[in-house]
């Protein structure tokens, strides 16, 4: 997704109808180690997450989309690079 907007991840969060706190909790649950503020900075594109952090965030969002009856719309680090 070379031309994806920098706040692409936050757009996914809004579509998934999650607050920043909810998403942080899910991210933490799946093994995330960054603070809430860092997570927000990743979502807005203000900070570049590591591949690992990107994967945990993507998984937290994708599991939510599956709960809502969707698929896995959020690309993982590897897909992001090859896009």
């Amino acid at each position: 997704m070379a031309d994806a907007p920098v706040d692409e991840l936050d757009a996914f969060r809004r579509s998934a109808d999650l607050t920043h706190g909810e998403l942080w909790f899910r991210y933490f649950e799946l093994g995330g180690m960054s603070t809430g503020i860092q997570l927000e900075a990743f979502l807005y594109g203000a900070l570049e997450p590591t591949d690992h952090d990107r994967d945990v965030i993507a998984q937290a969002l994708n599991e939510r989309f599956v709960e809502l009856g969707g698929n896995h719309p959020v690309p993982y680090a590897e897909e992001e690079r090859s896009a």
Binding site: V6, I37, E40, A41, Y44, G45, A46, L47
Partner: peptide, 17 residues
Amino acid sequence: DGSGLHVIAKCAGRLAL
């Protein structure tokens, strides 16, 4: 406090965009 940082992080993201 942290709430100010949230604003700064968001604003930096918008400007980067």
